[in-house]
Amino acid sequence: MATRKTAAKPNVSADELKTYYHDMLLIRRFEEKAGQLYGMGLIGGFCHLYIGQEAVVVGLEAAADEGDKRVTSYRDHGHMLACGMDPNGVMAELTGREGGYSKGKGGSMHMFSKEKNFYGGHGIVGAQVPIGTGLAFADKYLGNDRVSFAYFGDGAANQGQVYESFNMAAVWKLPVIFVIENNQYAMGTSQKRSTSSPEIYKRGEPFGIPGEIVDGMDVLAVKAAGEKAVAHCRSGEGPYILEVKTYRYRGHSMSDPAKYRTREEVQNMREKHDPIEHIRQMLIDGKHATEEDLKEIDKSIKDVVNKSADFAKESPEPALDELWTDIYADVAPQDEDA
């Protein structure tokens, strides 16, 4: 495999590299396990795996600070793990159990964590974009300097509400980073066939929103771009667009035969551009870690993922009276510990 040069010469420590390696590998192994449980009938409905795209969320989370917010679409497991949510709770939600983040009532596409400022997990393509813009509106209103990440795909980039959000974010200078995770396929429709412009990040230009394209298979490049975007937003300059070029190895969802692309294309990405392999090589080549060290990390991740699967299987189904709870609040959850 050809060694890739990372765009920005990394100003990162060995420990940081190891953290990114760990976080990306956790997402991959978790998703592989989820795929396995799906195959066993333990997970139902729609299940969209994040395999291949790990560097996007891990790189951007490395650029985020305490209190920053994030919201994304239905391909959300990676975002939740990257922002520190508990793999047990995520996996148990996938299996629809009491121990899941939404007590089994949300499933793969609808999970939230108030504690980690993760605002979902939204099943309607593009709907999370105005919501993320509104999170930024709230922060600006409240006068803090927090930043919100609104993640969406190249497919969602053709939804009208994305541009309604661009406009409002620009007019009101809202601290929101629009992250276009361009994995090049909107379900089965390639970007070429669906999107008039090859450079989606330039769609912010008419609104006066700066944007840039980022190699989403390189966690350090993503982190560097994220830091720039965060600094821009935090200083009150308004929104920023990052188009992060990435690739999903698996189908759109579990039932996708992926006939719209060739096996060679996928193999090429896996073999030559894999984001985890990339960091692994950097760690080894730079003598920041030995094969033994990495094996140790692999093993610890395997344990965490296996434990989450066990938890997700053992956690009971929600009690039947849960059907009738959480429809109306007596106190807004946001106000509970205010």
């Binding site: 917010k69 105005p130 509104g134 930024a136 509106f137 509400q161 309604e164 409002m168 007019v171 946001q334």
Partner: peptide
């Protein structure tokens, strides 16, 4: 004008934005 906000004509957008603002504590 911080608390009485004229929006562009963008119902889908500002309704969604307000949902986000409500999630965010407003």
């Amino acid at each position: 004008d911080k608390r009485v906000v004229d929006t562009p004509i963008t119902e889908h957008g500002f309704a969604g934005l307000a949902v986000g603002a409500a999630f965010g504590g407003l």
